[in-house]
Design a protein around this nucleic acid. Structure first.
Lengths: 237, 237
DNA sequence: CGAGAGGTCCTGTATATACAGGTTAGATGC
DNA sequence: GCATCTAACCTGTATATACAGGACCTCTCG
């Protein structure tokens, strides 16, 4: 006949989630087995399996083979935040994004840079760029980046105003792995000047390391004015 | 015969990911269709479908019905960080966790609190607690929390040293939704004192709002010493 | 009385099959 | 030449079926 507005497995998920939301099943409680869902909701076992597998992936349930399916202990589960591309973020807000290149050069590979970029990098030098990103003319991020020349040998000739460094690196080298560390720090003097920070303003620092072709590709320190930047995350069961 | 060490769909995923990692398929490139995977790897279409669906969920691929499957544009994709339970985190590091209750009382529902907790809350008062969490005796987090009395009427009698407020709330009210906002701020005077902050030290502030039974349950400001706390995230294709 | 065997229920995986509906390109008709 | 219709291919969903292996309970045998 006509198409179903929502898939069956979504209805199964909804049915299970509703009984968790109602408080009928608290954390650790055993929920219906696949066979019980099959009987109760008149669906095939594969459909029930997919619904439950989705909820396990979402962190709502947890399973033990041979034992059963249980409401996950959300106390222990982490809730995720998203770190996104700053240029895309700004444009999605309908604002103007502009980048200004402060510096782009070849530098000696110091011990500190080598430690950040990964000890496996053999090269004697690295590429270093400092770019300031503006939202409607207001500085929002100072991007201080070291790039492994083995991964991006042409980095010095990239127009970092037209393309963000991250976009360029993604294009020339397949991204395998990204690590982020987020901290609140007091601003360095040069960063405070570039961001136009008030006297006691804090900086949200994101350190991002990327890997490509089994070696470190780039290490970036992204400094954000504390009063103008935030990370958001929503977990909705 | 004997059990397969790794599931078939994992091998299919690996096969696709390997060709992306090698650079053969860059962002936006079209990857093999399910039928092509079926022919190439001699698996059933359902198995190929599951492998691809997993990779879509992981953000590696994206699909358009009727068109095909494509390598996701990781530039646009956000990479997630995890916000976890501080007490569990500390204990997992093998360190001692201790909590100290600074204040626990009923307060008037001010306009500001009502705005934070959600305008739908009808109650004329709210519960307010301030708890300091210590890792091996060093203050790590100041937890400043407002609780909706309709969700947790017994909050004033909870032993916040034995149980964290978040754990208690999860137990008495099924968690439906959690929102996080992360910012870097200059410390308030009282927070600086409780955390024992250095003069120019910054604070990583996590604001967490939780919902239960279709209404806001709790609003918490989690203040962390910038020099002692960080959020980490790893994205591994 | 205790240990081991077997049965039952559970999850996990894999397959063949089927139909609905989106997208595109090429064939067909005006 | 242009618009339209159709066939081919794609994803998305749903089902029935099958077997492997883990966990647990019970029954039986020594």
């Amino acid at each position: 006949m006509s198409a179903l507005p929502t898939p069956l497995y979504e209805k199964v998920k909804h049915h299970v989630v509703a009984r968790i939301r109602s408080g009928e099943w608290g954390p650790g409680a055993r929920v219906l087995s696949e066979h019980e869902l099959v009987r109760e909701l008149k669906v095939s076992r594969m459909t029930a399996n997919r619904a439950i597998r989705d909820l396990v992936h979402a962190g709502v349930l947890s399973r033990v083979a041979g034992l059963g399916t249980f409401v996950a202990d959300l106390r222990a589960a982490g809730h995720s935040l998203q770190i996104r591309n700053i240029a895309a973020d700004i444009r999605e807000r309908g604002h103007e994004h502009r980048a200004e290149v402060v510096s782009l050069q070849r530098v000696e590979m110091s011990a500190e840079v080598r430690a950040c970029l990964g000890l496996k990098v053999r090269s004697k030098y690295a590429f270093h760029s400092v770019v300031v990103h503006y939202e409607n003319g207001v500085p929002l991020q100072v991007e201080d980046r070291y790039v492994n020349p083995e991964v991006a040998p042409d980095y010095l000739s990239v127009d970092l105003v037209a393309t963000t460094a991250h976009e360029y690196l993604m294009r020339v080298a397949p991204l395998e792995r990204v690590q982020h560390v987020v901290r609140a720090v007091a601003p360095q003097v040069c960063v405070a000047r570039l961001l136009g920070l008030a006297a006691d303003e804090s900086v949200l620092l994101i350190e991002r390391t990327t890997w490509s072709r089994a070696q470190p590709a780039s290490f970036a320190r992204l400094h954000h004015a504390g009063s103008r930047f935030e990370l958001r995350g929503l977990f909705d069961i």
